[in-house]
Design a protein around this nucleic acid. Structure first.
Lengths: 253, 253
DNA sequence: TTACAATTGTGTCAATAAGACACTAAGATT
DNA sequence: AATCTTAGTGTCTTATTGACACAATTGTAA
């Protein structure tokens, strides 16, 4: 929650620069040590967790706004972003409304407005990100998908919807280029799929299917130094990957 | 295009009742005599075609607004509706902006606002609809998908995106309950799929697959009176159909 | 009334994809 | 050297898909 002074400053700035009634919330997925991670913010006064989000500048394209917001939070540019749903329940920001309605007169108060929020999900390389808090947050950090704090507003619903969409997408599009490092082993890639789907997959069938898509290049040299048998290193074949993204893997009909 | 008087009245009403910056546009699909149909509006002055759309009342849920708008245009309630994308290019309503900017002072002028539009697509039973024009339209009517007039603003893009989404959905969800009459024959249902996909399907394989989904009931009595061999009549098994909608047909993994 | 065209219902076969499963190879640990 | 762990590869079986042929029913034309 903001202090009165913070709120007044923010409201003035917001009314001048942002489009009213619209916000953007992002579900940023990362993958690290076999766990699915989500980027969350904790407000300064503590105990209130949110998805990273922001507002749309008056003349800014939506996608650009989502990129801008994510660049501020992750340090990354040109992120894989996908708009997946608009959340518009008239009561969805009631918590903010109640918290701020007495601090600033309604006509000046950004937060007594109704907001529709456009949900984007992003897939990013965990190791490349530098989570950075925004002006009102104490903390911006990765949380395990299975061990999240309670999220305020309807952000738990937004997260769940994003995850459902991602799982569906796995069926007809390649995924992973944005979540894996440049080079990776087949078992590492399998772990990503298992984590997203929350389901064990057969090692051999996974490899057969994955290679069948034709979007992977195998490097000559296996990874060395680790314990156990040295695994081959793979990278994505960008050209085929992009093509598969566009055309999708086999439609049923 | 509106007259100055119409515009002034509309703007006053709109500012009072509608949420600024947001609109809703609907792609209403119907199916008749083997052709895919889309509902379009022609403005009174003629020559300008649009998808049916409208605005969001200040306290109205989005889905309810889409339903309200469609009930006004089609006479139908409880339509199958699916939100599929938000279109937010800052220049998307430039045509309106230019047309109306000089008629009413900017601060009062609804159409000099930037608008994001939420796209919904609807599937309806062609024979049950009664297309009705709105206050600014001369005509609300069905057009063949393959023989559409040029649509204003970004409505051609909205339509294309809706169609792409519908085609994708065909792969993991049942469809047809909302587009077919209560009873129908297998060849008629096949024609629906062929029309949506714009592709011929094998009669026998289609039947096998369709029946495999377990969402159809076959009536005892075949349809009589027509020429040629009497086909069986089918209807959807609502319970299984709803279940299939929720769970989806077989995901790849 | 008979042959024919059009349409529908049903079944089979082959190719492909998916699922289950076992063995071999390489490196680290004891 | 024996063993543990992880990785690479192949085979068999079953399910799904795609291609295709034939029989049945009804109206129409000879």
């Amino acid at each position: 929650m903001l202090t009165k002074k913070e709120l007044e400053e923010f409201c003035e700035n917001a009314r001048e620069n942002y489009l009213a009634h619209i916000s953007i919330d992002c579900v940023v997925f990362g993958f690290h040590e076999g766990l699915m991670k989500v980027l969350v913010l904790e407000l300064k006064n503590g105990g209130e967790w949110y998805l990273p989000g922001g507002f749309l500048l008056k003349k800014e394209p939506i996608e650009e706004a989502a990129n801008r917001i994510l660049k501020e939070r992750t340090g990354l540019d040109e992120i894989f972003l996908q708009q997946f749903h608009v959340f518009g329940d008239p009561e969805r920001s009631k918590e903010h409304f109640d918290a701020y309605k007495d601090m600033v007169p309604a006509k000046d108060n950004w937060f007594t407005n109704r907001f529709l929020t456009i949900g984007y999900y992003a897939l990013v390389d965990f190791c490349e990100t530098n989570p950075a808090a925004d002006q009102f947050s104490a903390l911006c950090s990765w949380c395990d998908l299975n061990d999240l704090p309670e999220l305020k507003l309807d952000h738990a619903l937004i997260l769940k919807t994003a995850l459902d969409t991602l799982r569906l997408q796995l069926n007809y599009q390649p995924i992973g280029y944005n979540l894996m490092p440049k080079q990776f082993t087949m078992p590492e890639l399998q772990k990503l799929y298992e984590t997203i789907l929350d389901k064990k997959l057969d090692r051999r069938n996974f490899q057969r299917r994955m290679l069948g898509f034709g979007i992977l290049n195998r490097s000559e040299q296996p990874r060395k130094g680790g314990a156990h048998k040295a695994p081959y290193l793979y990278s994505f074949d960008l050209e085929n990957y992009e093509a598969a993204l566009k055309e999708g893997f086999k439609g049923g009909w």
